[in-house]
Design a protein around this nucleic acid. Structure first.
Lengths: 140, 140
DNA sequence: CAATTCGTGCAACTTTGTTGCGTAAACAGA
DNA sequence: TCTGTTTACGCAACAAAGTTGCACGAATTG
């Protein structure tokens, strides 16, 4: 069954990072592994059927997973973090797309080269965060 | 005196939008006209010497100015809006730079062409928000 | 200068996220 | 499988940013 596979993968990933594979951590990471799009704290809460961890615990688990590099946080203009698993394809820097109608957020494959950017004199590049806005296929 | 010029310009811009040129609005817009970098709600509050409008009023004035297109809001990863005047040069879409050390935010001139982006099939582009992170000249 | 419209201030509320601390659960070793 | 230690969880309280409703007051219009 697919759900078990996600849980097994989740547990394995968590242990590989030296953390305890608690029920909550495993369920949250398994859930994230199963999501195509980036999800908010609230959405995760709603989808964790039969398990209602404390808000604080959820925040801490998400922070821990992000610190370990298993997931990444996405900034948005609605002041809400969204989380997405770091699949191999997304381990490098990449852009995000946010649908202006349904608020869905997905990861895009690439990021424009930094050579297309000119910074003021003396400024030093570190990274870039790019969010493309528009309509997703379902909302067009 | 320079400050007067900013206030005069501010008043003119506000009237042109059909709004009442109240002391608060004029002072806030004049302050924004004088800023090179994008400023937060808090920073504006701190710099409005001799005038302490209610938090709510400040939010409402900033929202009004943004609605009228006189200023623009900038999203940041610290969940705080920053505001910057829409100089002619910034009326088009542009990128922002945020210093990872002093948190300063400035507007950059350009934005990479959307041709460098490939969206999933059926997705429709509307706009992009790009924040470059790094060190500003003072923090390098 | 009166009437009306629009802006402001106050209070209360909402949302999102954080901190401290005691308790409970996971893992390691016997 | 028991026991001890370490780590994670839950609760309560807090904090920051921003919003809403409503009554009052100040700008403009005529």
């Amino acid at each position: 069954m697919m759900l078990n596979t996600y849980r097994d993968t989740a547990e394995e990933l968590i242990r590989k990072e030296g953390g305890r594979a608690t029920g909550i951590r495993v369920r949250i990471l398994a859930l994230l592994l199963a999501q195509e799009q980036a999800v908010t704290h609230r959405e995760i809460e709603a989808r964790l059927t039969g398990l209602q961890p404390d808000r604080v615990t959820l925040y801490r688990v998400l922070q821990w997973l992000a610190d370990k590099g298993l997931i990444h946080k996405i900034t948005s203009d609605d002041r809400v973090w969204r989380f997405h698993v770091n699949h191999d394809a997304y381990m490098h820097q990449h852009a995000h797309f946010k649908c202006t109608r349904c608020a869905k957020v997905v990861c895009l494959d690439e990021l424009p080269s930094r050579r297309h950017l000119t910074l003021p004199a003396g400024y030093q590049f570190q990274s870039m965060e790019l969010t493309v806005k528009g309509l997703c296929a379902q909302c067009v």
